[in-house]
Computed example of a mutant assay.
Amino acid sequence: MRLHREGNTIMLTTGLVLLALNLLAYFYLFSDNPTATTLLGIVSLVLFILVVQFFRIPNRLLTTGDAQVIAPADGKVVVIEETTEGEYFKDRRRQVSIFMSPLNVHVNRNPVSGIVRYFKYFPGKYLVAWHPKSSTENERTTVVIETPNGVKVLLRQIAGAVARRIIWYVKEGQPVKQGDEFGFIKFGSRVDVFLPLDAEIKVKIGDVTKGGVTVIAELVK
């Protein structure tokens, strides 16, 4: 396991603030109360571990396959439905949504290999990720990848009530490889995947996914 570079500043800042707080408590605030300083130390350690684990990148054997669509994120499948995608395709698509809690790994990975045909960032609100309007009103990005077989898959990173920053590493015209990082969402949110109607869905509501590993669908072409 390694730690993601997006967490370097947050982990360092958190560690320094907690260290300063504990030193202040030990020498001044609770100098005559060892129980209080011990409890503060334990709470600080737990808090720091929670922050660090958020930025972890576990070692994994990634799944690859030209016809397979791989989960772009760790989390739980909360939506599987046929819906109208109105931003890019403007037609009916099959949507699979994965909700990420603050305890999940938050690396976002390319579900397919291909060329980025479309990218757009939208500033917006921070509604809870399961809110019906979060996919159209929250801060979000939209990425469309066209596979070598000409099938287009749309990904949408959606910020939530806790997540306040979306990171992306792709741009239009860029070739991308299945399983590589395309972005990161800090502190929980959701990723929507829009697929052709004839895609065969391989997951069900409530399934837990592993980014880069779990096959969520298979493409016909």
Results as ranks from 00 to 15, higher is better:
residue 1 M to G: 15
residue 21 L to S: 14
residue 38 T to Q: 15
residue 131 H to E: 08
residue 85 E to R: 04
residue 135 S to H: 01
residue 3 L to S: 06
residue 139 E to M: 00
residue 26 Y to F: 08
residue 82 E to W: 10
residue 78 V to E: 04
residue 71 A to E: 01
residue 32 D to C: 13
residue 55 F to H: 03
residue 141 T to W: 03
residue 3 L to Y: 08
residue 175 P to L: 03
residue 198 D to A: 07
residue 206 G to A: 07
residue 25 A to P: 05
residue 65 G to H: 11
residue 106 H to M: 03
residue 13 T to R: 12
residue 21 L to G: 14
residue 127 L to C: 00
residue 141 T to N: 01
residue 21 L to V: 11
residue 154 L to V: 12
residue 92 R to L: 15
residue 65 G to F: 07
residue 116 V to E: 02
residue 168 W to R: 15
residue 144 V to Q: 02
residue 36 A to W: 00
residue 101 S to C: 02
residue 126 Y to M: 10
residue 146 E to H: 06
residue 18 L to V: 14
residue 134 S to Q: 02
residue 136 T to E: 08
residue 40 L to Q: 10
residue 88 Y to I: 09
residue 95 Q to N: 09
residue 153 V to W: 10
residue 37 T to L: 14
residue 164 R to V: 09
residue 154 L to I: 09
residue 213 V to Y: 14
residue 87 E to T: 03
residue 104 N to R: 03
residue 151 V to A: 12
residue 90 K to C: 04
residue 58 P to D: 15
residue 84 T to D: 05
residue 23 L to Q: 01
residue 22 N to D: 13
residue 199 A to I: 11
residue 113 S to C: 04
residue 32 D to E: 15
residue 103 L to I: 13
residue 85 E to G: 00
residue 100 M to F: 04
residue 31 S to P: 03
residue 173 G to S: 11
residue 137 E to M: 08
residue 35 T to H: 13
residue 71 A to N: 06
residue 12 L to Q: 08
residue 175 P to R: 01
residue 80 I to N: 02
residue 193 V to E: 06
residue 79 V to L: 15
residue 87 E to P: 06
residue 157 Q to R: 12
residue 14 T to Y: 06
residue 205 I to K: 13
residue 169 Y to E: 14
residue 92 R to P: 12
residue 187 F to T: 08
residue 204 K to D: 13
residue 102 P to R: 01
residue 5 R to P: 09
residue 184 F to G: 05
residue 91 D to A: 03
residue 7 G to D: 15
residue 48 F to H: 11
residue 97 S to A: 11
residue 122 F to E: 00
residue 114 G to I: 05
residue 126 Y to A: 06
residue 74 D to W: 10
residue 1 M to A: 15
residue 216 I to G: 12
residue 158 I to W: 04
residue 102 P to Y: 09
residue 6 E to D: 07
residue 58 P to Y: 14
residue 18 L to E: 07
residue 35 T to L: 12
residue 10 I to Q: 07
residue 88 Y to C: 04
residue 37 T to I: 12
residue 218 E to V: 15
residue 73 A to S: 05
residue 76 K to T: 15
residue 110 N to E: 00
residue 174 Q to R: 12
residue 11 M to L: 05
residue 166 I to P: 12
residue 178 Q to S: 07
residue 206 G to P: 13
residue 106 H to Q: 03
residue 187 F to H: 01
residue 24 L to R: 14
residue 127 L to Y: 03
residue 216 I to C: 12
residue 131 H to R: 08
residue 94 R to S: 04
residue 94 R to H: 08
residue 112 V to T: 06
residue 147 T to I: 05
residue 69 V to K: 02
residue 197 L to G: 09
residue 145 I to P: 02
residue 149 N to G: 09
residue 86 G to Y: 03
residue 22 N to Q: 13
residue 24 L to F: 13
residue 88 Y to P: 07
residue 146 E to Y: 04
